[in-house]
Nucleic acid binder design. Structure first.
Lengths: 154, 154
DNA sequence: GGAAGAAGCTTGCATGTGCATGTATGCTTT
DNA sequence: AAAGCATACATGCACATGCAAGCTTCTTCC
């Protein structure tokens, strides 16, 4: 089968950390995938778009600066530039110059953006809750851990 | 500031689920980023490459079929095709035809692959543990949840 | 007050990924 | 045995993302 000489390395067994983390990664991938698919098919927006709208909708004047958005979503600044471009094209947000700092750019959410977010939020919440509950049912460790994170609260 | 009429929508506050999940996403993004950077800079491989090598190294004969790898890593099948191509180019794995099912393809890890994984594993474990411990120190909910997942075990 | 450097954002480029499709092999049914 | 369908993998294409470089504006220091 393996033409290489009988493996001289004794299969470096992954430690508990790495092994458990693998399960986390898998869970994360599946949940994200479920969320992305649902949002795209039912509301025509991606996961990043949804998250950006969420932060904007719950912000003071419905506006945030680029870097602030990047930090909150965990994306690169350049990625946010394009993300906002997509949102603008969809009329869900628009750019507004910072009056006091002419380098700054505010991204402002429109009424259409708020409406879209409100709709998408229902799908998101439901999908997320279902996915987590399902996962918790399969893995007892998750059932113990999720409440500690405040994740299955109502 | 916002030329739109005074927002008629009362800022749909995200529920507990969604809000906590946002923190999880952020943590995930940061940890993944730390891992990816460390692996790339110190060992010249990406996160997906590392994970693939890990599954191969801990498999029976050091070989797995494409779909099996895809399932374990949480990637699309086509993505794994290219991932394996990259690994092959780096001489860390090679393709082997399935004797009984000529449609099947085994990806076999080489000795160089095992060696690289063993090295990278040290970095990975250390980086992961540090990141998680750091995060747990900041967020008490994590401190409670991580042990339940078996994540900070020694 | 002018110059040098920092900060904020955008753009060019490379890359990893998913979806849809193509191709070859295996299986099942008649 | 042949036809039709399923399975396994590879490929074309589109796209979101990160990094590095560029541009404008602000800040600091002399």
């Amino acid at each position: 089968m393996a033409p290489t000489a009988p493996t001289p390395h004794p299969a470096p067994a992954p430690s508990a950390v790495s092994s458990s983390w693998n399960d986390v990664l898998l869970l994360h991938a599946r949940v994200e995938n479920a969320l992305a698919t649902a949002l795209q098919r039912r509301h025509g927006i991606g996961l990043s778009e949804y998250r950006a709208l969420g932060h904007l909708a719950t912000s003071d004047a419905g506006e945030l600066r680029m870097q602030e958005l990047a930090d909150r979503i965990g994306l690169n600044q350049s990625s946010v530039t394009r993300l906002v471009t997509r949102l603008n094209t969809a009329e869900l947000t628009y750019r507004d110059l910072c009056p006091d700092d002419k380098r700054g750019v505010y991204t402002v959410i429109t009424d259409a953006g708020r409406a879209r977010y409100a709709e998408a939020n229902v799908t998101y919440e439901a999908t997320l809750r279902t996915a987590l509950e399902e996962a918790a049912r399969v893995d007892p460790r998750l059932a113990a851990a999720l409440p500690a994170l405040g994740l299955l609260d109502r």
